[in-house]
Design a protein around this nucleic acid. Structure first.
Lengths: 212, 212
DNA sequence: CTCGGATCGGCAACTTCCTGCCGGCCGTGG
DNA sequence: CCACGGCCGGCAGGAAGTTGCCGATCCGAG
């Protein structure tokens, strides 16, 4: 770990947890933004098991977490444990803010390990916090989003599979018993959920999430 | 391992090598077809380290192995060790034929492990062999193909990166200092090399190969 | 110098994809 | 029963991608 002023840059999640575990253990206000579950979750040290009733845990995810059944289940569980979960279509940098006093920002990945900046500076944390609040306000409650996209998740696996075969929309639509217009609606929703601006990008993202 | 007539179905490569290692050790004529290097190579037991001079080793790969620098290097090494390597744009089932007497065909993958059919039946092996020969004749010598696609591999990383950002061809072409026509030529070549029929599929394949 | 081959990039025709619009169908609630 | 809202799918117009063609340019060989 190297020091840059008062900002500590740690390499890899191992080191991050080692350094901040005690803070997570006592935090009562956790704000977290993540694009997928690979960054904060599934690690050795789950950052936010919300046990205490008085604490407030807020998490913002991208819609794509709802497409992967495993991720969706995990998010639902976290939500059931008392965390407030919202969904946003925007691209967010992985961020955690503890008790409005410490900000952790994920940075570049080099050689498989990601850098994390641990920032205790009050002004910086306040600025990051206000951005988080804005993103939070703009995001959709998990339950609401979940209801909106229920039927999409129903069809998503088959749509992805058909896209993965490289066949034309016409063919794929018929094979699903849908009109081409409706099929394309599904694809568009899927791409929005994946945050992809092109089908190539959607393919990459889908593969990253293990959906194909 | 279960037995089906005289055809043995083994689950996973471990078991396959355990059962066939002695055959690989003595084989003098090895024919192998593979879509990528994940199936036969990189395993605990490299199936074909061609040491003896009298033996003949033939391998058919898909063009995509040349896109991944690591794979490309591995293939080149194998080639330098005396194996005949050819490239085909066709989709081939993973296949190994030993001494024209034993065929090994890769089958379905279930739960992460793949099934392999080990076939000693002479008629079946002869049939598979003739198909392999046909594919072999239709494939291109590695050196030739390599020369043809040298400049593609030069540009491929950047093209893939741009595709991965989801930007339009116009934008991507400019950012590479190419005409749109040329950029699209590169994309088309890339898709052919990946065996993809759509950009979505290309995205999936590219991600599978770790190229993005 | 000239020829042959290769690449580039503009043009154009075509296919595929994207999306707003709208009419039709269906279930809900007044 | 009817109004309303949601979803479906055809249509149409436009955007994006695909491909053959061709002239311009750039070597390297003869």
């Amino acid at each position: 770990m190297e020091l840059t002023g008062q900002v500590a840059v740690v390499r890899g999640e191992e080191e991050l947890w080692a350094r901040t575990a005690h803070l997570f253990a006592t935090a009562t206000d956790v704000a977290c933004a993540a694009n997928d579950l690979n960054t904060w979750a599934r690690s050795r040290h789950p950052p936010t098991p919300p046990r205490v009733v008085g604490m407030r845990v807020r998490k913002i995810y991208r819609p794509s977490v709802l497409l992967d059944p495993n991720s969706a289940r995990h998010v639902t569980e976290v939500n059931a444990l008392g965390a407030d979960v919202r969904i946003t279509p925007d691209e967010l940098n992985e961020t955690i803010i503890l008790d409005r006093r410490l900000a952790i920002l994920a940075g570049e990945t080099s050689g498989g390990v990601r850098n994390y900046s641990v920032i205790p500076l009050p002004d910086v944390v306040a600025g990051v916090m206000s951005l988080f609040e804005a993103a939070w306000r703009g995001a959709t409650e998990l339950a609401v989003y979940d209801a909106q996209t229920a039927e999409l998740r129903e069809l998503a696996p088959r749509v992805l599979e058909l896209l993965g075969t490289g066949c034309k929309d016409e063919t794929a639509a018929r094979s699903l018993g849908l009109g081409v217009r409706t099929y394309r609606r599904r694809v568009a929703e899927l791409m929005a959920a994946l945050g992809a601006g092109s089908r190539f990008q959607a393919g990459v993202r889908a593969r990253e999430l293990g959906l194909v």
